[in-house]
């Protein structure tokens, strides 16, 4: 149209934007910024952040058996595990030291997939800060331990699926223990 019409149309767009930001609700063009510390957006379930170790009921019987698979699989190599030995030197199925360096961890979730014992999962907690670089961000075993209920709270569907699978394995193991395994049939 005439010389300045493009400019005017552009300006009307921003003016409409400005008026909408005052009067419309977030979905039809209004403001949708949420004031972060006061009002938090609900976290999606599949959101993943730094890993944590799961224990059932008490922190002692944690699921991790220090098999070191996740330490090998971890791309940036930020997991450090030392197996626990009992008094007379027999190796135990529990880690004595289990450290994850959160400054190095890139929360990729490979350790979660690699772990055969469902011991390590990705957490939703992201407000982590430390005063100095090495000290406070190197999480030790007791910092990493979190209960199964917490796991249920943050990732209900995954936790439920994992628990049902564990109960079935448990039941299958009980069943196997009750009647001894049949000797491999001589015929086949």
């Amino acid at each position: 149209m005439f010389y300045g019409s493009g400019v005017l149309r552009g300006m009307l767009v921003t003016l409409k934007n400005m008026i909408q930001s005052y009067f419309c609700k977030p979905e039809d063009g209004g403001l949708f910024t949420s004031q972060y510390p006061e009002k938090r957006l609900p976290e999606k379930e599949r959101f993943r952040n730094f890993p944590f170790l799961i224990y059932d009921k008490e922190p002692e019987n944690l699921r991790c058996v220090a098999c070191d698979i996740c330490a090998k699989e971890c791309p940036p190599k930020c997991i450090y595990i030392i197996r626990d030995f009992d008094t007379d030197g027999k190796p135990l199925k529990k880690p004595k030291i289990f450290d994850i360096d959160l400054t190095v961890c890139m929360n990729c979730g490979i350790c979660e997939e690699a772990c055969p014992f469902d011991a390590i999962y990705m957490d939703h907690e992201f407000e982590i800060s430390g005063r100095e670089r090495q000290g406070s961000l190197l999480y030790h075993k007791d910092d990493l331990l979190k209960s199964n209920e917490h796991f249920h709270k943050i990732r209900p569907t995954d936790a439920a699926a994992i628990d049902t699978r564990r109960q079935e394995d448990e039941a299958k193991k009980q069943a196997v223990k009750k009647e001894p395994p049949k000797p491999p049939s001589t015929a086949s």
Binding site: T14, L15, N17, M18, S21, Y22, L31, F32, T33
Partner: peptide
């Protein structure tokens, strides 16, 4: 404030 409101932020 005004420029922010025009860009849908606070």
């Amino acid at each position: 404030k005004v420029v922010a409101r025009m860009q849908n932020r606070l």
